[in-house]
């Protein structure tokens, strides 16, 4: 094994891990807040997809990757708003709603993509390259040996993803964070103290959608310069697991996302080191790890008291 652990291998593996964790962090960190407020976003996979497509479309028409990231966030937030309306205002079952939103997203993105980029043949959409993000080496930091190559030579969206973690910690510790927890634990108490459960749940869900939209933007115009319908590839569902395994805490989410990303990156890098493990078996790791984690190896995860439960104002 010793010849496997060369510098190039380790640096490459960890840099890929850093990148791969970014969309998971973006999707899971908002989800952690949503779940703390009592709402699960099973449609996260759909938010990522509409976000990724929205970003691609935005960058295609506006010619700028940053504006594309913006439209991606709007698309993700709009998808989440629709899901939020059904779950929060119409009080439908959250899990079923999430699945419905996901199926709807696949259909809506699929048809829009094929219509807009069909070039006369709806069966074979044309791949168009758009303005995408480039790596931006952080001045100074990127010249630190090893660490510079691993962490400070990434596309800007990756830095943004990691920046959300301390911001989320601050938010969680603030008065607003307390309100989010109260929404999940005792919505009635929050209401009688003058807060609005519906408002906070909407804010959490829409923010989850916007952040996931940014994560989707990374998948389309961050790591590539184009779009295909399978770009999300289950990351939304993994992010659900990340939020839960990470105990719905930003730091937990960060650690869980990195573990997942490491498993994802290993299947890219192990073959380069001559280790012949079937790709699919390595890809199973994150899913198996999630199940083991949920089985209470690292302690049971406790759900908020009002988890999955719609709130209705007392008349």
């Amino acid at each position: 094994m010793s010849e496997v652990l060369t510098e190039a291998f380790l640096v490459g593996l960890l840099a890929t891990t850093m990148r791969a964790a970014a969309p998971l962090i973006l999707a899971a960190i908002g989800e952690a807040f949503s779940q703390t407020a009592g709402v699960i976003n099973v449609g996260l996979e759909g938010y990522l997809l509409t976000g990724g497509f929205g970003a691609y479309l935005g960058s295609h028409y506006l010619g700028n990757a940053w504006l594309g990231a913006g439209t991606g966030m709007v698309a993700g937030a709009a998808t989440a708003l629709l899901a939020g309306y059904v779950m929060i205002s119409r009080r439908a079952d959250q899990i079923v709603t999430g699945l419905a939103i996901w199926i709807l997203s696949i259909g809506a993105v699929g048809i829009a993509y094929r219509i807009i980029f069909s070039d006369g043949n709806a069966l074979q959409p044309q791949r168009v390259a758009v303005d995408a993000f480039n790596e931006w080496a952080v001045p100074g930091l990127s010249s630190i040996p090893w660490i510079g190559d691993i962490a400070f030579n990434q596309v800007p969206l990756v830095y943004l993803a990691y920046l959300t973690v301390p911001l989320a910690v601050l938010l969680l510790r603030s008065r607003r964070g307390l309100k989010v927890r109260a929404t999940g634990e005792s919505p009635e108490a929050l209401e009688s103290a003058g807060g609005s459960v519906l408002r906070i749940r909407y804010l959490c869900v829409v923010a989850t959608g916007a952040l996931a939209g940014l994560g989707g933007a990374y998948l389309s115009i961050g790591q590539t310069d184009t779009f295909e319908e399978g770009i999300v590839g289950g990351r939304g569902f993994i992010a659900l697991g990340v939020a839960i395994v990470g105990r719905r805490h930003p730091v937990g989410v960060l650690i869980a996302a990195l573990v997942f990303a490491l498993a994802e990156s290993l299947q890219l890098w192990l073959p380069t080191a001559g280790v012949d493990v079937p790709r699919q078996l390595l890809q199973m790791l994150p899913y198996v790890v999630t199940i083991i984690a949920l089985a209470g190896i690292f302690g049971r995860v406790r759900h908020p008291r009002a988890f999955l439960k719609p709130f209705e104002r007392q008349a």
Partner: peptide, 22 residues
């Protein structure tokens, strides 16, 4: 028209159904 129309309609059916349940 792309066959994704089928999937779009399926998703819409479920969403509208969920709308009406409450």
């Amino acid at each position: 028209v792309p066959a994704s129309l089928g999937s779009l309609v399926e998703g819409l059916v479920l969403v509208f159904f969920l709308f009406s349940i409450p």
